[in-house]
Design a binder for these strands. Structure first.
Length: 278
DNA sequence: CATCTTGTTACGTT
DNA sequence: AAACGTAACAAGAT
């Protein structure tokens, strides 16, 4: 599931354990989600570490512990975090279990596209500090977005929105939502957007991200009625404005859904200069 | 049984 | 060198 709002929601699932030490740990350390981790070091060091803080940035999560320990998590497609009972029996897909006196903090991921990182140091790890500015931050300016799109000018705008270096936290459904609201066709070349289309895109990136965080991110409730979100899952979804069946095609390697009327092929184009009258 | 999936990355090509 | 498209990863749902 996780795009930035779902990631934010899962981040808070572990909050109940803040301020408490880890008393034990269980891992499926041979799985690919541990490929960047020194597993024995993680297992031995984490014991007695106190869980101090959590942060989310786009789809990335960082958990800080005492003893200068940090745990980075990426949820992939199917990762989830939860807090379970202290004696919870870890199942096949529960790859990381942090035991505290009163609960177990769980990382569950059946499809194994997720990733765990382990870092020791006074400061947050380099990969974390190198992350691009969040789309809802003041640093995510229209100019910055324009520069990014220019660097990927031939890429379909849908594919560009999925690049985490430019739009951290945006995933497939959010990208479709943004394009539908901005009235831009998903296949339009990223670097050819007219100024007004680009302005709408920038605004909708921020709007969709913020709204998703206040609905899904808080309590996993659905985004407001009238969003494309509610129509894009099954076949036969309809445009909330026009009621016509949504178009569906693979763009940028993922299924895209859009409204032919809201987002015609030429949407995004610079308005043709009026021909001088004869 | 075949096909689909809300993510990323390695790899080959342009 | 950088940008781009595609296959691959793995497992569950339809």
């Amino acid at each position: 599931m996780p795009e930035l709002a779902e990631v934010e929601y899962y981040r808070t699932r572990w909050n109940v354990g803040l301020g408490q030490p880890i008393v034990g740990i269980a891992v499926h350390g041979e799985k690919r989600i541990f490929r960047k981790v020194d597993v024995p070091a993680l297992v031995s060091q984490m014991v007695d570490a106190v869980f101090l803080e959590s942060q989310a940035r786009g789809k990335q999560l960082l958990f800080r512990f005492s003893k200068n320990l940090w745990l980075g998590l990426h949820l992939g497609m199917t990762g989830k975090l939860s807090a379970e009972t202290a004696d919870y029996a870890a199942g096949k897909h529960d790859h990381l279990v942090l035991r505290q006196r009163d609960r177990s903090l769980l990382f569950h991921d059946p499809r194994l596209f997720g990733q765990i990182r382990f870092h020791q140091g006074a400061d947050a790890p380099d990969w974390w500090r190198a992350l691009p500015p969040p789309v809802d931050s003041p640093e995510f300016t229209a100019e910055r977005m324009e520069q990014f799109l220019k660097r990927h000018s031939k890429l379909p705008i849908k594919a560009a929105l999925l690049l985490q270096a430019g739009f951290p936290g945006i995933g497939n459904w959010m990208a479709d939502e943004i394009l539908w609201r901005a009235k831009v066709h998903p296949r339009y070349p990223a670097g050819r957007l007219a100024a007004d289309a680009q302005r709408r895109l920038w605004r909708e990136v921020r709007f969709v991200a913020r709204k998703a965080i206040t609905s899904i991110g808080q309590d996993f409730s659905d985004p407001p009625r009238g969003w494309l979100f509610h129509e894009r899952w099954g076949k036969g979804g309809r445009c909330p404005i026009h009621g016509n069946t949504l178009e569906r095609r693979t763009i940028g390697g993922r299924t895209s859904a859009w409204c032919k009327t809201c987002q015609p092929e030429a949407s995004g184009a610079r308005l043709r200069a009026r021909k001088a009258s004869v």
